[in-house]
Design a binder for these strands. Structure first.
Length: 490
RNA sequence: GGUAUUGUGGCCGAGAGGCUAGGCUCAGCUCUGCAAAAGCUGCUACAGCGGUUCGAAUCCGCUCAAUACCUCCA
């Protein structure tokens, strides 16, 4: 099935390139996961939903994908300075909890959120604390290769030395001298030789809770190291795709590449770097530090002050897929409401296709439609374009259903297969509020039958009463030529 | 301050030299006991000013505006 001409935008080359995996039919993909010191918000969710589609589509094309997404549970420094405090232990003090208790709580929270968005779990979800030995070993190797130095129990990566023979800023294309001469001051870190040097291993203060023994004393790993160590362990020294939010590229990913090269000498540890753009609120990046982030439950039940009402997880997933992953996406009531209706329209068509009557000819070219959908996804996972073609399909389905257009059996089956595979399998959308017990179905059909009898007697007050009462309970009734149908209201 | 990116109709959001994006909203029509749904039609936009071109939303220049990164963040 891998005959597709999949292309993806590579941050490293700033170009859209044909996707060629290092090993035929196998794909190694690493995505930087969340730091579990507080609730994951919708901005985080956007990135992981984007990569969920990448994961799903690659698999759909027939690749065997190993998708690794880490959990950062060892904490990061508040700043890159050695006097900074570990985020996780800081939160632990505030909440009077053990650090691992925080980690556990927010890891579960994160998993629940991703499950609600119908995101597939990654193949491997390694934790930083579970790979301390690997990180120490990697630090040792980088030191042995001469790219790191120890200073008072902390090990720093020597960026300037690395940059002599390597392109340190390859990912962002920044001018190294500009970075070195940046206006930001060194905040009294005398242990560091260069202002761009970053910690591989950090000496722990006595009161620090999360710490491990190492050749350099008690400490904890630096915040870029875990991804290098774990991607290397599970995907090898060179692998295909590395992803993450755009905000990680200049520092985190730049340093990750440096670490990998310094350790393994492979000039290109990763072939394709993919970065997702930010979710914005009123044009501003949604982030924890700006305090404008939405928590999933605030969105689902509408308790956030900026929202008029709640929106279901699938509405939100659909909303996100209506924008390309490399564009910013702005969050607003109006946009969400539009998504809610559009999604309902799509799901309605998905149900309708099952019962479509077939004819001797087709008024639409289903094959071309199918090719258009694949062409969109092959073009750097362009889900908005794919959806626009899918909506063309819903128009066809509705028209056939109305008897205004016709479709052959073969075309119907092809359309059904295409939509099921793309909408459910690749885009990961699913029907919500499905009524799936036989007893409710039987009961509803009985009620509708009684109502229909009233209608044929022209007893419209009774038929309207039944419809109104059912609506109060939460069932929507729609009368059509083929009889009445019911559906659950959100 | 440095470095990038972006600016599309009432809203969201694609496209990237000529060909309808799409969704939502609004108005009208068809269907219909009513309602809803659905279909059709209409509203036809590309920040501003110049330039290149037979032709520009799309390329180039300038201006304005916004955002991001440079500092933890997906």
């Amino acid at each position: 099935m891998i005959h597709h001409d999949l292309k993806l935008y590579n941050t490293l080359t700033r170009q859209t390139e044909k996707f060629v995996p290092l090993h035929p039919n196998l794909v190694g993909m690493y995505v930087c996961g969340p730091t579990v010191y507080s609730n994951a918000h919708l901005g985080n969710a956007r990135t992981f939903i984007s990569f969920d589609v990448v994961f799903r589509y690659l698999q759909h094309l027939g690749y065997k994908v190993r998708y690794v997404r880490n959990i950062t549970d060892a904490g990061h420094l508040e700043s890159d300075a050695d006097e900074g405090e570990d985020k996780i232990s800081r939160k632990a003090k505030i909440e009077q909890l053990e650090p691992m208790e925080i980690v556990q709580r927010y890891t579960i929270d994160f998993h629940q959120m991703m499950a609600s968005f119908n995101a597939l779990p990654p193949s491997i979800e390694p934790t930083a604390t579970g790979h301390i030995i690997e990180q120490i070993e990697m630090t040792k190797q980088i030191m042995a290769n001469g790219f790191a130095y120890e200073s008072n129990g902390t090990v720093y990566f020597d960026v300037e030395k690395f940059a002599k023979d390597n392109n340190y800023t390859a990912l962002t294309g920044r001018n190294l001298d500009d970075l070195l001469n940046g206006t930001r001051e060194l905040s009294g870190q005398d242990d560091k030789r260069g202002r761009l040097d970053f910690a591989l291993w950090i000496k722990a203060k006595p009161e620090h809770i999360m710490k491990w023994p190492s050749p350099w004393g008690e400490g904890f790993p630096g915040w870029h190291l875990e991804c290098s160590a774990m991607s290397r362990k599970y995907l090898g020294e060179q692998f295909d795709i590395h992803g993450g939010g755009m905000d990680l590229a200049p520092t985190h990913h730049t340093n990750e590449i440096a670490q990998n090269i310094a350790c393994t000498h492979h000039k290109t540890p990763v072939t394709y770097w993919m970065h997702t753009n930010m979710l914005t609120v009123n044009g501003q990046k949604m982030s924890k530090s700006l305090g404008n982030s939405f928590l999933p439950h605030e969105l689902f039940n509408g308790s956030h002050p900026l929202l008029d009402k709640g929106y279901s997880p699938m509405t939100v997933r659909f909303f996100m897929l209506q924008a390309h992953y490399r564009s910013t996406l702005d969050f607003s009531n109006e946009a969400l409401q539009a998504a809610e209706k559009g999604f309902a329209r799509l799901m309605n068509a998905m149900k309708l296709i099952e019962h479509l009557k077939v004819g001797v000819s087709s008024t639409s070219n289903v094959q071309v439609l199918r090719e258009n959908i694949y062409a969109a996804l092959d073009d750097d996972f362009n889900t908005p374009i794919a959806l626009s073609h899918i909506f063309e399909a819903t128009r066809i389905i509705n028209s056939v259903n109305d008897g205004k257009e016709s479709i052959t059996h073969e075309d119907k089956e092809l359309l059904k297969k295409t939509l099921y595979e793309i909408v459910y399998q690749v885009l990961g959308l699913k029907e919500e509020n499905a009524v799936n017990t036989d007893k409710i179905d039987g009961l509803m059909n009985m009620i509708l039958e009684v109502r229909n009898e009233a209608k044929t007697r022209k007893d419209f007050s009774t038929s309207d009463l039944i419809r109104d009462k059912l609506k109060e309970i939460g069932f929507d009734i729609k009368d059509g030529k083929e009889g009445s149908k019911y559906s659950l209201i959100n």
